[in-house]
Computed example of a mutant assay.
Amino acid sequence: MNRSLANRDVKTQILDIAQSTMGNRGFSAVGLNEILKAAQVPKGSFYHYFESKEAFGVALLERYFSRYLAELDELLASSDERSAVSRLMRYWQRWVETQSGHDLQSRCLVVKLGAEVSDLSASMRQVLENGTDRIIERLTRELTRARQNGEMADDGDARELAASLYQMWLGASMLAKVTQNDSPLQSALSTTRRLLDQD
């Protein structure tokens, strides 16, 4: 195995373990020693991959958004769903499934880390802002397509609706953590159906 591939594998292993651990407990509560021990990587070699814990956090969030956006693009390009609204509803339904389950790799890092790291690190906050903007852009495009296809009423600003929906789902995810049940997510799903003229 060549050295660059080995380095990438080790870096990926560190980030995989960090995503599940920090997705469960947060950024500040998890020490580097814990992650490196779980990844079976010597502590001294951490700085070969990341300049600091903050740079590590930036890399973690960048990778999270890269994967999330790729999955969202695939879902919205799916030919299995014939309408833009049905593709959007599938996205929200998947949100309910992933955020109410026990798979730590699927937890929304925006919900888990957003408030915490935005106060700790300007660079991590910037990654969060850029990533969420790109999600809202994709939702805006799909809402615009739905309106153009006559699937929903063509009134109001599509980006404003996309941002409002995304913000509602972030809030619902936070409340689902507080209440330890998926009722807030189910409520968000019902409201989304209504806003997309699906009731």
Rank of each mutant, 00 (worst) to 15 (best):
V41C: 14
T144R: 15
D197M: 08
L165F: 06
V96N: 15
A55R: 06
R125H: 15
A39R: 00
S28V: 04
I135L: 13
K11G: 07
A59T: 00
R94C: 05
I35Y: 08
Q180C: 12
L88C: 01
D182S: 07
Y49M: 07
A176P: 07
D133F: 02
L128H: 06
V10G: 05
D119Q: 12
I35F: 12
M22W: 07
L36R: 05
G131V: 00
E137S: 02
L32E: 12
D157Q: 06
A38M: 03
L120H: 03
L120K: 06
D9R: 13
D155L: 08
P42K: 02
E129N: 09
M168F: 11
T98G: 03
L72N: 08
Q93F: 05
S183I: 09
A162L: 07
M174K: 12
S190A: 15
E137P: 00
Q13R: 11
Q99Y: 10
L196W: 04
E129L: 03
S121C: 03
L104C: 09
I14M: 05
Q167Y: 13
L75E: 13
Y49L: 08
G101Y: 11
S121H: 02
A29M: 02
Y49H: 12
R63C: 05
L139C: 07
S28Y: 02
S187F: 13
